[in-house]
Computed example of a mutant assay.
Amino acid sequence: MERKSNARLLVLLTFVAFIIGLRMVAPLSPDFKWFANFSGVGAVAIFSGSYFKNRFSAYVLPMLVLLLSDLGLAMTMGVNYGFYQGWYYTYIAFALMVLSAQLLVNKVTVTNVFAASLVGVFIHWIISDFGVWYGSTYYPQTLAGFWTCLVAAIPFELNFLYGTLIYSVIMFAGFEALKSKFPSLALRTAIA
């Protein structure tokens, strides 16, 4: 039984590692400005909240993916790119994305994953842009200033939504296909 649990954990971690790899090579792309928000980090949060039964793993892995990618971005693009003003609000948003997946994806279905992705991206939009707006000298510290910040972020959030949806399809469909081929990955008592 332990061996089957370890196999499940290894497969789940492989899916997460694949997304980390894509996020780490993104700065090397000549179209990085467009590609930057088209990432799979949101999908990792939804995936982790849906599949990892160990709550510690469900929250820590997306945070670790985000931290590693932010460190990579800071080293390749500059410190202010990876760790901008209010960056920690983005980490809060990702923790809430994991929570939304835990609450919305009781059973992995297209509808549940889609709903968790939409809710997660909406949470990300509001919380992370609150961090950009709060204390900003660029946006007035009023409700209208916060609204202006949210509107300015729509193109970036749309890319984040598309990335979250597409990478979610890849991750969830891939893992579900593996579960149908290898039933031991579907263990209810798995550690992961």
Rank of each mutant, 00 (worst) to 15 (best):
S168V: 08
L143N: 03
L165T: 01
A173T: 05
P155E: 03
V119K: 05
F182L: 12
M75N: 08
N54W: 02
W133P: 04
G40E: 10
A190L: 08
Y138C: 01
L10E: 03
I19H: 01
G163F: 14
L10V: 12
I19A: 02
W34P: 07
L22R: 09
L96W: 13
H124Q: 04
G135C: 14
A58W: 00
F122K: 00
K181E: 02
A177N: 04
L118Q: 10
L104G: 03
Y167Q: 04
T111P: 04
F38H: 14
A186V: 02
I127W: 10
M1R: 02
V98H: 01
A101G: 15
F130L: 05
F83M: 07
V113H: 10
V113G: 08
S117A: 15
P140L: 06
I19Y: 04
P183M: 08
S5L: 02
I154M: 15
A153Q: 03
W133G: 01
I154N: 14
L61T: 03
G135D: 07
F83V: 06
L61Y: 09
F83K: 14
G78A: 12
F122S: 07
V98Y: 00
F172S: 12
T76M: 14
V151I: 14
G135S: 13
K33G: 07
A36W: 10
S48G: 06
A192G: 15
I123E: 09
A36L: 08
L67R: 07
Q141A: 07
F114R: 03
L185W: 06
P62G: 02
I19D: 00
L161E: 02
A116Y: 01
L161Q: 06
S5D: 12
G120F: 00
Y91C: 10
D129A: 03
V44P: 06
L150S: 07
F130D: 01
A144E: 15
F146M: 01
I19F: 09
Q85F: 09
I126P: 01
C149M: 04
I170P: 04
A152S: 07
K4G: 07
F146G: 00
S136I: 11
Q102D: 11
N159R: 12
N54I: 06
L22H: 08
T148Y: 08
F35Q: 06
F47S: 08
A45W: 07
N80S: 12
V113T: 13
A144N: 14
V151Y: 02
V65P: 00
I170M: 11
G82D: 14
A192E: 09
S50G: 10
A58Q: 00
L178E: 06
N106H: 15
M171W: 05
A186G: 05
S168P: 09
I127S: 04
G49Q: 09
A58S: 01
F32S: 02
Q141D: 13
Q102F: 06
L64E: 02
W125E: 06
L161Y: 03
L103T: 08
F94W: 08
A101D: 14
D129W: 10
I20L: 15
M1P: 05
G120K: 04
M77H: 09
P140Q: 06
V121D: 01
P155A: 09
V151D: 03
G120S: 15
K179Y: 07
F15P: 01
